[in-house]
Amino acid sequence: MKKVHVSTTINGDNKEFLCDTRETLLDALRDHLALTGSKEGCGTGDCGACSVIFEGEVICSCLALAVEAEGKNIDTIEGMANDGKLHILQKKFLEHAALQCGICTPGILMASKSLLQQNKEPTKEEVRFWLAGNLCRCTGYDKIINAVLDAAKEMRETV
């Protein structure tokens, strides 16, 4: 089958790739653009390890087709730190030991970033429900929730 040419914007950079129409956005990010920070845990939208921000909304990139990226703005984990400076969320995840194996971490960071863009002062409950689509098998979530709340606090104080 002939491949499709896609032009898109990822982490602010113009990107182009060729893909099969059956490939997912996650396949394109990982296999065509070498952005392997987004992970495939299930391929069915259940685990959230592939979370990216697509036109301002957090989505599972395994559920979007690669061709849907045409002309769109996509943010991935690789664009979260800026000029070598960690995002406050990234810093807080390290300080709170909010990761063990780290496979779910990119997806959880992207989902958390999206939450804090929409809700600057989430409650513990709101964080838990927002992140209910991101599975973590190592931590029991406690340190993740603390890291997100602490990041939200610091982001409010620094603005």
Binding site: L35, G37, S38, M80, F93, T105
Partner: peptide, 14 residues
């Protein structure tokens, strides 16, 4: 830590 929060850590499929 930094590799793991920036997506640079290389896992099995990476």
């Amino acid at each position: 830590g930094i590799e793991k929060v920036t997506g640079q850590a290389r896992f099995g499929a990476d």
